[in-house]
């Protein structure tokens, strides 16, 4: 439960909702529908195509196992039409609630709207819908992710240096991060962006892209990689080219391998920024809490939008963010 300290707001809310239920023990086995029987909740998430989504899957399984009194069905999808199929199958199984991390925002919105109209509680995590069809929307603060990481980079470079910007999968998450970071970089004329490209939040793609960038630019001071998988790809490229000195990488998301290296004072990884995949667990906890308390009652006070703060991990505080048993 230590990890909840990252998300004080959400944790407080989740705790409050559970507190309203008949049993405040998560394993109480007391949650039953008004008509009797177990609640059934579907969790629909993207397939694990990179470390972060693998972390989402891990946290989803873990969080669901804390509530054996509810029947959980966890499905993952490679792309939107597969996710729509999953959601329809879950509906036909009679779920009371759905926790959805969309593969993509717009394509999942119409089906989410239909499911919401059919009376299913919708908790949306991370990638938002394009219309307000979720009962609760939980996301990380991606603008803060971009801003805080860029500010750190500018500060560490003393406002002067040549940097590379790597972007992720085209999505609102990526757009918010990059736009916020670029705003910071542009306001410092000493910062020169020598290259900007997409590594799709993927280690191999980031390595390829970085190899090409390295051959084109003899002088690079730092890489804003925006993701820990990409950061590791960049590191491979740097080592292969013998350019791993006097250069550093800023990833993002708080992968345990990177956090460990920040903690150990590795010069390549002076810092990292959190974007916890455990936010899916917050979604699961929230759905469970709302169902236990009674949907109509709980929704009277549940905020429709919860924003999880992101934090800079430095050697000083890295210990608090290091979870060796986590998959990510």
């Amino acid at each position: 439960m230590k990890r909840w300290t990252w998300m004080p707001v959400a944790a407080a809310i989740a705790a409050a909702t559970i507190g309203c239920s008949s049993g405040s023990q998560p394993t109480g086995g007391t949650a039953t529908k008004p008509g009797g029987g177990k609640f059934k909740v579907g969790v629909s998430i993207p397939a694990a195509d990179h470390g972060w989504t693998a972390g989402v899957k891990w946290w989803a399984d873990k969080a669901a196992s804390l509530h054996p009194d509810i029947e959980w069905i966890i499905e993952d999808a490679k792309e939107p039409s597969e996710q729509i199929t999953d959601l329809e199958n879950l509906q036909s199984q009679g779920v009371d609630a759905l926790v959805i991390l969309a593969t993509e925002s717009a394509p999942i919105t119409p089906i989410a709207e239909k499911l919401h109209e059919a009376g299913i509680l919708i908790v949306n995590v991370d990638r938002g819908f394009t219309k307000p069809v979720a009962d609760v929307f939980i996301e990380g603060d991606n603008k803060a992710f971009g801003r805080k990481s860029a500010e750190y980079m500018v500060q560490k470079l003393n406002g002067k240096g040549k940097i590379v910007v790597l972007e992720g999968i085209p999505s609102t998450v990526n757009t918010d991060r990059v736009a916020a970071a670029m705003e910071v970089f542009r306001s410092h004329p000493g910062i020169e962006i020598v290259a900007q490209d997409s590594g799709y939040w993927n280690r191999e793609k980031a390595e390829q892209v970085m190899q090409n960038i390295l051959t084109a630019h003899p002088q690079i001071d730092a890489i804003w990689a925006s993701d820990d998988d990409m950061a590791l790809g960049v590191e491979n490229a740097l080592r292969a080219a013998g350019r791993d000195k006097n250069i550093w990488i800023l990833g993002g998301a708080g992968m345990k391998d990177i956090v460990k290296r920040v903690m150990d004072g590795d010069p390549l990884f002076p810092a990292d920024i959190t974007y916890p995949p455990s936010m899916i667990a917050v979604g699961i906890q929230t759905a469970a809490g709302i169902l236990r308390a009674g949907k109509a009652e709980a929704l009277q006070y549940m905020p429709k939008h919860l924003m999880i703060d992101v934090e800079l991990i430095t050697p000083e505080n890295a210990k608090e963010y290091y979870f060796p048993e986590s998959i990510f």
Binding site: K78, S81, I84, A106, P107, T109, P110
Partner: peptide, 10 residues
Amino acid sequence: KQNSIGTGSA
């Protein structure tokens, strides 16, 4: 059905 098209994923 998706009222949109994901050009990378559709």
